Simulated assay, not measured.
Amino acid sequence: MKHNAAVLVMVMAFVLSGCDRGPEKKDVSREAVIIGIGSQVLSTPILMAHEKGFFAAEGLDVTLKQFTFGKLALEALFAGQVNFATAAETPIVMNSFSRTDYAVVGTFVHNYDDSKILVRTDRGIKTVADLKGKRVGTTLGTSAHFYLDAYLNYYGMLISQVTLLDIPQKDLPDALARGEVDAVSVFEPYGYSTLAQLPEKSARLPKTELLRETFSLVAMKSYLLGHPETVKKILKAVERADAFILSNREQSIRTIAKRLDLDRKFLDTTWDDYRFDLSLDQTLLLTYEDVAQWAIHNRLTEKRQMPDYWNFLYIDGMKSVRPEAVRILR
């Protein structure tokens, strides 16, 4: 009996140990995804989805690769360095003249006051008309570039009436402070840091709402076709992040201030300008067409025909995750 009992104990121990090892053998690995993001407040939903574990909850192991702004993240996508990129309208459109192998998955934020025209008041600039003949710095091929042209046209000027200098956004605050330019067209957070460097010698020209700047999630079409479920998981996580941001303003601001190393005062004063909402709407297509016409008119591209931007949308993911937010007419 003692022998049988000993055997029974050994058998039970083996069975139990096997049960303990079962979960370890189970494949619990998450799918690896790399997202390139612009280090801007516009990237908040992606940052919050990562910070709060919403990507992980969808079974994704997401790595965020930060770039100064969305144009560089998009270039990283084309170079095969990331699976997704966040980008605004202008770089998305500018690349559409030379390639058609990428698509927008969804838009997760928009802002009507992200780009700004800032000037040195000690250079005799008090009105928009005073910009004539002045040196204006911006980053070509970005939303700030498009905004500058639209802004000047709105006030009856042509961009040819200023001396345009191509300067990376992160270098614009220093360029204005050193007097290398007389004015800048800049998007946040570089607008805030520009004014902070020259509090007594700089000012903002009148605010307009000429551009609804968005940040969209972009991927290569080949990746989208091969990973439709991954796209849905990404969108679900971003949707949760948007909802969290709306319900947790203070915590979201603290998180973004830390993740992007931003002045809390800047976020407090600009946070409500951002509208966090996952969508694909008609306004996005109309904005793409406006930017394309601008690029063609100003000969920023050799192409004379505007692409069909319907072909640059991947709507299957949004239709599955948030169909009510897909508001596009063919």
Rank of each mutant, 00 (worst) to 15 (best):
L148S: 12
L198F: 05
L211C: 02
T127H: 14
R21Q: 14
E209P: 02
A175Y: 08
K52A: 11
E289A: 09
F78V: 11
V82S: 04
P199G: 09
G80I: 07
R21M: 15
L262N: 05
A175K: 06
S202R: 09
M306L: 12
R21V: 15
V105H: 01
A237T: 03
A292R: 05
H110L: 03
R212P: 03
V238N: 01
W310R: 12
M94Y: 06
T139S: 15
G80V: 08
T287I: 03
L217Q: 00
M220P: 00
F244N: 05
L148D: 13
G137L: 07
V15N: 12
A219L: 01
L164W: 10
R254D: 15
L8C: 08
S98Q: 09
T68M: 04
F215V: 02
P307G: 08
K170P: 01
T90C: 03
E51A: 11
K265R: 14
A243L: 08
T63P: 02
W294E: 14
G156F: 02
G317A: 06
T287G: 06
E239V: 02
A243D: 09
A241H: 00
S279M: 07
L262A: 10
K25D: 06
K258V: 09
H50N: 14
I37R: 01
G156R: 12
G191D: 03
V62N: 00
T142Q: 11
L285K: 07
S193G: 03
D20V: 13
A87I: 04
W294T: 11
E51P: 09
I34G: 02
L172T: 05
Y314I: 02
F146W: 09
A73D: 04
D242M: 00
L210C: 06
E209R: 11
R240T: 05
S143D: 14
Q66D: 05
K132Q: 15
V291N: 10
Q40S: 12
N153W: 08
M220I: 06
I167V: 14
A237K: 00
M48W: 13
Q197W: 00
N83L: 04
E180P: 07
Y309A: 03
Q169S: 12
D277L: 05
V9F: 11
E24Y: 12
H50D: 15
I35Q: 01
D113E: 10
N248L: 08
Y288P: 01
T139H: 14
A295F: 09
L262V: 07
R322Q: 10
E31N: 08
L286P: 04
H110S: 11
P189G: 07
A79F: 10
E58Q: 13
P307L: 04
V33P: 00
R30C: 07
Q282A: 12
Y147N: 10
R330C: 13
L198D: 11
L164P: 12
D166P: 13
T139I: 06
M94V: 10
Q251D: 15
R123A: 13
D174A: 10
Q169P: 06
E31I: 05
